[in-house]
């Protein structure tokens, strides 16, 4: 599975820089749908989860009012579900019907392999100064974790959400206690997703020193040769070795689009961090 969740790179203002394609338009659109609906789900779900907190009623009013909050939550859920199913269909089409190589295994796949385990260990050793920085391939281990965390999260939160939405129907297959359990599963897994995305993903991908303040590649789809070489040396070298690097050549993104993407991206990060602060205040009060 080769669905990228995000990448790491910084936009380089260098004028003569060569640019290479990392994400297709469909993949970038998928990320846009994903973060838009995720923010919507978090903003409408958190007031319900923490309805006792001092901000719950105000936030509920701000995101559409009490009457609309559950409707908006379900609306975002349905859109996200459709996006998820389209993604699964696309992966199946590429991997099973078209027999495209490298979808389920290899350096371009999202499936974890032995190198990811070694990279994790090596990266941690590098953190504490006990070894060199590992060389990463197209998708680093934390990127794969993000992908699978979101994948698993959508299955778990989605299933438990629909089980609550259509409880009498689901009751035909689920034992009675499961109807109680789905709320715990839904809210705890969603809480994990909110805390993870709004802190770990934001920092790992956008806010850490190497990418600060925002990695634009998920919005523009392209990155400069220098970034490519530095961030993903194994993939870069392989493409050179195979002589296919030039196939990835792309135009530099237009300035207006970069500006637009920055506004959207920073808005998303701002909303996310706000929700993170609210969540933490509710959780620890």
């Amino acid at each position: 599975m080769t669905e990228p969740v995000r990448a790491e790179a910084t936009t380089n203002p260098g004028g003569e820089e060569k640019y290479y394609l990392r994400f297709t338009r469909e993949q970038r659109l998928m990320h846009a749908v994903l973060f838009t609906t995720f923010l919507g789900l978090a903003a409408t779900g958190l007031p319900i989860r923490f309805s006792q907190s001092f901000w719950a009623r105000k936030l509920a009013a701000a995101v559409g009012g009490f009457g609309a909050i559950l409707f908006l939550h379900k609306l975002c859920a349905v859109v996200l579900t459709i996006a998820f199913l389209l993604h699964v269909k696309e992966v199946m089409r590429r991997g099973l019907i078209h027999r495209e190589k490298g979808v389920f295994w290899g350096p371009n796949s999202m499936v974890a392999n032995w190198k990811d385990a070694k990279d994790l260990g090596g990266h941690m050793r590098w953190f504490v100064g006990l070894g060199p920085r590992p060389k990463f391939d197209r998708y680093a281990y934390w990127e794969k974790f993000d992908y699978w965390a979101v994948f698993w999260g959508m299955v778990v939160i989605g299933f438990s959400g629909y089980a609550m939405w259509f409880a009498p129907f689901f009751a035909h297959f689920l034992p009675g206690w499961a109807l109680n359990a789905v709320l715990v599963i839904h809210s705890d897994e969603a809480l994990l997703a909110v805390l993870f995305i709004f802190s770990i993903h934001f920092v790992n991908t956008h806010l850490r020193p190497d990418s600060f303040p925002m990695d634009m590649v998920i919005f523009t789809g392209v990155e400069s040769e220098e970034e490519f070489k530095q961030k993903r040396p194994l993939e870069y070298e392989r493409e050179i070795g195979k002589g296919t690097l030039e196939k990835k050549r792309a135009e530099a993104p237009p300035l207006w689009f970069v500006t637009f993407a920055r506004i959207v991206g920073f808005t998303a990060i701002f909303i996310g961090l706000t929700l993170l602060v609210l969540t933490l205040t509710a959780y620890f009060s």
């Binding site: 990266h123 941690m124 590098w126 953190f127 504490v128 100064g129 934390w142 965390a149 359990a181 715990v184 599963i185 705890d188 897994e189 809480l191 994990l192 805390l195 993870f196 802190s199 770990i200 920092v203 790992n204 850490r208 020193p209 190497d210």
Partner: peptide
């Protein structure tokens, strides 16, 4: 179920929080 979900939440967040903090410092 609650116990499992709580453990999952705490372990994932603890690991990645440490991972991210160390990463930031090193970078």
């Amino acid at each position: 179920v609650r116990l499992f979900m709580n453990l999952l939440l705490v372990s994932v967040l603890t690991f990645f929080l440490l991972h991210t903090i160390l990463w930031i410092i090193r970078s």
